[in-house]
Every structure is written in C-alpha cells, then in structure tokens.
Amino acid sequence: MMAPETSSDLLQVSHFSVDLYTARAALRPVDGVSYSVAPGETLAIVGESGSGKTVLNFAPLGLMPTGVVTDLSGSVLFDGQQLVGLPEPALRRIRGGKIGTIFQDPMSALNPALRIGRQIAEVAELHLGMTHAQAEARALDLLKLVRMSDPQARLRQYPHELSGGLRQRAMIAIAIAAEPRLLIADEPTTALDVTVQAQIIGLLKDLQRRLNTAIVLITHDMGVVASIAARVAVMYAGRLAEYGPVEQVLLTPRHPYTRGLIAALPSVDDAPGSPFRGLPGTPPVLGAPLPGCAFAPRCPQVIDICARQYPPLRGSGGPGPGAAVACHVVNARPSKEQAHA
C-alpha cells in the first residue's frame, strides 16, 4: 500500500491523524497520513495553505497553540521512540535536541529583545549541557558554519539589525545547535528574496551533507522541492494525494491534483502577458473528515465513486519505491510507467 518502510528509517509516520478541538469547532487537519524519512534524507511535504502540512509536522512535537485541545492518533516513530502520547517533558528533550526546527519568517521567529548569540547559545546549554562560556563559543562556531559574515560581531547583534537572509541563517544556527538528526523546515525560504532563497537552500544542502541530518521540508514551492528533496509527499486537505521520488512526482505526476499544481507553475516559455494559470475551485474548509476524495469537487476526471469512497494511497506496483497515488481513477487503470515497463 505504502512505499516500503525499512526499520532503518529515522522517522516513520503511519496512519497518523490529528484532531483539534477548539471552543467552537472540531477539526481534523491531518487524516491518516503515512510516510517515512531515512537518516540524511530530504523529504518535501507540498501542499496549499491549510492542507495540514504544518500541523502534520508540529503536532507530534507538541508545538501547538495553547487553548487548542490536540488529539493525536496513529504512530509517529522517531529514532525508535513513539512520539504519539509521549509526555511533554520527554518531548521537550527531543525538541531542539534531536529535532531542530526552522520557521518561515525569521524576523518574527527570533526574539527581538535578545542577542543572536544568546538565542543560539541557549540551545547548546539546554541540550548539550554546556556552560555559558562553552555555549557562547559554540554559538560562534555555528555562525561560522552557517557562513555568516563577521560572526564575532553578529553574536552581539539583535535580530532587527540583520537582513532577512542573515536572520534565517541565525535561525538555522539555532536549529542545528544541538546537532539534530532531523531538521523540520517550515517554508524556510518563503519570506526571503529569490536570490537569498537559493543561498539558504544551498546552505541547507551543505549542512545536511556535513552533519548527515535528515530534513523534512514543508513548502509550496515546487522549485525548492526539485532542488533539494529526494522524495516528496503531496498533501491535500489533510491527506496524502501522492507520495514518491521527486523525479517521478514532478516529471510524471499522476494524481490530478499534483498534475494541476505542476501545470499551474509559470514557465519561462510562456508568452509575456499570458494568463496566470491556477487550479479552479478552492480547497475544502477543514472540518469533519470527508467520506470521499477531498479533491473530487475540483477534479477534472471525477467519477461517481470519488464522492462516496475515500481513495487509498496505492503504489504503482512497479519495482522499487515508486510514486503512490490516492486516486480511484488513476489506480483503476495501469499507470504509464507500468505500461512502458
């Protein structure tokens, strides 16, 4: 059913669901999602805003806003440890320790009242048991590692004194301060200039190679996906629509939603002034889990069963870890790859 999972996986998520209960509503932003990440591998999770990709990654770590009751089900195995149901003190040791996090907007994610050096050193003190002096020295090393210019001076600066790119480098230094085995990067380049985006992606790739850190990259930027990820999971309305190796998913997308996403990308070959292509319709409002395929109302290939029955994520059936698709129509007919095989 799923891409084959091996016991050597660093992160193994299976049939994972998140239910949120606020004062006014009950939501299920993540519904039965399964995927895995091997050590040192990069998985991209792609989806529109509200598709549940952030909740999927933050809920197992206990990083949810206060005042919201979060109910997790299924399994999230990280480094042999079950995160679902793990008490908060144990989760705290993992957060910032074995799992580092990079946020979208480094301006608001960094504390405006604390020096950069302190914000980095704090992590080393907490997770590596370093003294104040040791941690400050480590902060300097980390700033060098993320290729910050004039690192000695940066230590004593405040976030508002840095440019967006430098702030994101500081954020990355915080995330890798305790040498995590997994980095969760939530849209790390979205708030940055295009030229800086490439630098940050380059830095992440470089750090990954040096530290052998696995990365889960949450993004909606297909260009970023292509440049860094080995595998990609496409999320739609809390479920995985398509999951597989990057080349396969990007070059031969099979799910109608993925195809629509990729077709919507502007291309340099487009005539100047050609209309902006988008996906018609809007994603469903989060609420109770839908009985059928959430994409059915927007799908150009919709058939009767789509509205009634949820399509399971099914592999191509070919040899190796091929792309798996959750679509009645696609899975009903032999895939192109199979036809060619």
Binding site: L63, I94, R95, G96, F103, A109, N111, P112, L126, H127
Partner: peptide, 15 residues
C-alpha cells in the same frame, strides 16, 4: 507568549 518567537523557544525545548 502568543508571538512566533515563543513558538521558536518551545521548539528549542524550553519549558
């Protein structure tokens, strides 16, 4: 505590 840097601090493993 409702500002994003508090979430960052939480992601660092601070209580």
């Amino acid at each position: 505590m409702a500002r994003p840097f508090a979430l960052t601090a939480s992601a660092k493993g601070l209580s």
